[in-house]
Design a binder for these strands. Structure first.
Length: 323
DNA sequence: CATCAGGGCCCTG
DNA sequence: CAGGGCCCTGAT
């Protein structure tokens, strides 16, 4: 892994729609830890590959729930052009859903027995992702059919062999590689790094980006059904991964049509206080209760639980997290 | 020590 | 459309 040291810094302000919860938006305690980002209350650091360039970004909370403001600091090798800085700002606004208007969601469920207390704590939290579509596909691939610990291992192996290390603002973080780097690799090499059958997936996913068959910006504008169809065409993306993509990467708040075993257990406890509720029941009830907001509603419940767990372990949750 | 499932998906029959 | 195979690893 080659390393870079970025000292040049440009700044601009971002003004999210209100209400806005900075910490709930930038830090998701249920996502597996990854060395491409770091979090502290009021701060978020993240490496970003944008266009052909690498940047170190830092978000600083300089506002409040009803008067939100974020300082975006961008560290780079060379001074960044104003236009590029504005484009990067827009990209960050999209990824963290900073321009969302969730007022209808809040109004509609202010009396929902499950959601109301959670909204009190987390109103203004957004449905966010810190990475691009390509990068999310890599994450989805290392998540499949394994435990969190091993997902973390695989991710760090990828960073070690194909990524870049960036030092900025007293942080040292890993940065993603461009798809062409993996594309130029042999399947046996990836297999030797213990990716097993995932080697093929990583290669085929890189290929569609190198060949320009995937344009994230165009996908964003598609209707959900059409988008889902496109995403399912990607090798290695099936029913479980597709709704992670729809929700997190593409902000489709209703994307909940499949429950994987792990989430089934957690939702069962969370919503019904039971060990295992039939997945059809889960899906139907969520639709009835929250309709087009169902995944966002579940996200709020999920994050609230994991924040709680981070501070004060929830006894039934611990054995479900295989760290 | 051996066995097995783990935050799925592809492919075959 | 059901079910076997896939890679590695930690848990048991």
């Amino acid at each position: 892994m080659n390393s870079l040291f970025f000292e040049t810094c440009s700044e601009t302000m971002i003004f999210p729609t209100a209400p806005f919860n900075f910490d709930g938006t930038v830090h998701k305690p249920d996502y597996f830890p990854s060395t491409d980002n770091a979090y502290a209350v009021g701060y978020y650091w993240q490496t970003v590959r944008f266009g052909e360039e690498l940047y170190g970004t830092k978000l600083t909370n300089e506002g409040s729930l009803y008067s939100p403001a974020i300082r975006l600091s961008v560290y780079s090798e060379r001074p960044i052009k104003t236009e590029t800085l504005m484009n990067l700002k827009e990209e960050i606004e999209y990824r963290f859903d900073l321009k969302a208007d969730l007022s209808k969601f809040y109004e509609q469920f202010s009396n929902d027995l499950l959601l109301a207390p959670v909204l009190e704590r987390w109103i203004g939290m957004r449905d966010s992702t810190n990475v691009s579509l390509y990068e999310f596909l890599v994450i989805a691939t290392v998540l499949q059919n394994t435990t969190v610990r091993r997902s973390v291992q695989m991710m760090e192996t990828l960073f070690k062999y194909y990524g870049t290390q960036i030092s900025f603002d007293d942080k040292v973080l890993s940065a993603f590689w461009p798809p062409i780097i993996i594309h130029g690799e042999k399947e046996e090499t990836l297999r030797a790094l213990k990716f097993g059958y995932r080697a093929k997936t990583l290669l085929r996913q890189s290929e569609i980006f190198v060949n320009g068959k995937m344009d994230e910006r165009i996908l964003r504008s598609l209707a959900t059904d059409q988008l889902k169809e496109k995403l399912l065409e990607i090798y290695g993306i099936g029913p479980a991964s597709v709704w992670y993509l729809l929700f997190q990467v593409f902000k489709r708040y209703d994307a909940f049509e499949y429950v994987s075993p792990w989430e089934q257990k957690i939702f069962s406890q969370l919503i019904y206080g039971e060990e295992l509720v039939d997945s059809k029941t889960l899906l139907n009830d969520a639709e009835k209760r929250w309709g087009p907001w169902k995944m966002l509603a579940l996200h709020y419940l999920f994050e609230d639980l994991f924040w709680k767990h981070e501070k004060d372990p929830v006894s039934w949750l611990s054995p479900l997290i295989h760290l």
